[in-house]
Design a protein around this nucleic acid. Sequence first.
RNA 1: GGCCCCGUAGCUCAGCUGGAUAGAGCAACGGUUUCCUAAACCGUAGGUCGCAGGUUCAAAUCCUGCCGGGGUCGCCA
Length: 586
Amino acid sequence: MNLFADVAARVTTALEALKSDGGLPADLAFPAFDAEPPRDATHGDVAVNAAMVLAKSAKMKPRDIAEALKAKLEAAPDVAKVEVAGPGFLNITFKNNVWQDLIRTILREGSAYGASSLGQAGKLNVEYVSANPTGPMHVGHCRGAVFGDALANLLVFAGYDVTREYYINDAGGQVNVLARSAFLRYREALGEDIGAIPEGLYPGEYLKPVGAALAAEHGHALINMPEERWLPIVRSFAIAKMLEMIKDDLAALNITHEVFFSEASLTSGGQDKVKAAIDVLRQKGLIYEGTLEKPKGHDDDEWEDRVQTLFKSTAFGDDEDRALQKSDGSYTYFAGDVAYHYDKLQRGFRHLINVFGADHVGYIPRMKAAVAALSDGNADLDIKVVNLVRLFKAGEPYKMSKRAGTFVTLREVVDEVGRDPVRYMMLYRKNQETLDFDFAKVTEQSKDNPVFYVQYAHARSASVLRNAAAQVPGLNVSPEALEKADLSILSDSGEIDLVKRLAGFPKLIEGAATAHEPHRIAFYLYDLASALHTQWTRGNDSPHLRFIQSNDGVATSARLALIYATKTVIKSGLEILGVEAPDAMR
RNA sequence: GGCCCCGUAGCUCAGCUGGAUAGAGCAACGGUUUCCUAAACCGUAGGUCGCAGGUUCAAAUCCUGCCGGGGUCGCCA
């Protein structure tokens, strides 16, 4: 049930009818037009721009087309009036029963209201977080994690068959550094004085338990081995521990992935999926041995030309071709990622989404080129960039430094601020915009803090339903009962305003899902909450507007139906954002 | 220097893939509580949508060029 999609369908039908009537040229193609809520309430409930969009190709005046459409559209029984306005807008005003029906629809559909078949269960893969398994997650990871998770929720709601995925970078040099750092802690756990952690190794305390666990499991067995023997043992042990820790951190944010994909697995067990993926590209003529030019502005004197295995990503819009093998013959990180994405395609995904941090933007064109090449253009990859998060404490910038040990972990933030405020704040901004995160503001429990404002609207709705059941004897506040209420008394402007906002929810979902922009939901919920609070407070001055009329069961039931519908939509929206919808705030 | 993101009210930001008179919160000023949660609400004031061109019935939105801020730039991950 999407009111605006419904109107668009009616207009299309009317246009077809006009074509067969001779009112429009028979060979006319219909370009995309919009049916949307007008900004100005005096312009009716739905504004349609079809006449203006069609004017040129139909070689007619827009207002003439609009008049012809008007005649068709106003015949519908639920339409109060259709006006032709401005340069050729069709402004449609519905009869009030449309809004009454909408409330009943929401009560009937419940949490399914607004869900969409946009994705038609197509397989879609969202890869996010993918933090290196070398330490705990810090705040920088937090935004991408929350964003990816909410986006995945949104796409599920929009009808996609979504898989949430985490790519484990367990094959590069960094995990060897991890292993050596853990080995040092292992020796420490065995009683050795290891002194200061050498430059180039990870100094964090979080490796101490790993060392202790190694000591408990292996005793002194590793200490006399040469590095090439203990390193693989310690490495896989430490990676497993780090992943455990990362999963715990993510769980603190209510984030879970269905698939953890190991980079190392691409070339383990006697197989080489990287070579296989490169061979696929080679067969397409996209691989060659060559040298890259020194980039302009690169004033490094140590530049020297090297012959490398290169992928011709420039054929797909990249600035330069990209290396797949290092000079020592081993694969680059990119080569592994190419193989990983080939694997996603082979698993049947045609829609791929990656969530990147702002420091990886330069990586986007080559990744898109790789997917375009490997899929022959039959898959789409959208890479969403989440911009930097700047930390503040009561207005003062909070500088982080790994070396000084003042970097803030994700866990610390969640523990101090709480899961819901963290998640909401991370989503209360466009992803490509930098975000200021102030600990003082985020923990504040007032309307300045949108998460409390929205949650309060939900709690307030729940409270009204509770109170009504207590105050009005015999009143049934179940959705099934409220659906049968006489809703015709809902005619106050504030009530109608609320319903109209609820009517926009399905359209909002489709727009946000199409654009991959979960933040729209956070803003929508804020506006919806505001409309509810407004109507509530109007009851202060005008007691006849209060939701509960203890001597009028009919009016009370009708308003409770509206409140229930509002509560339902707030809850659906918050669920997508991964934020609790509490029934009480106390 | 190349590429990417950002530039909208004093501040922080929305603006629904081009629609009609550009919105919200904060800050400022003035109001609302014998009443379903004041963790709320109402009102006033505040704008050359960075600048200049272009595209069209219509541009904050699309294109080009500048200006300013941030990010990034061969084998790291």
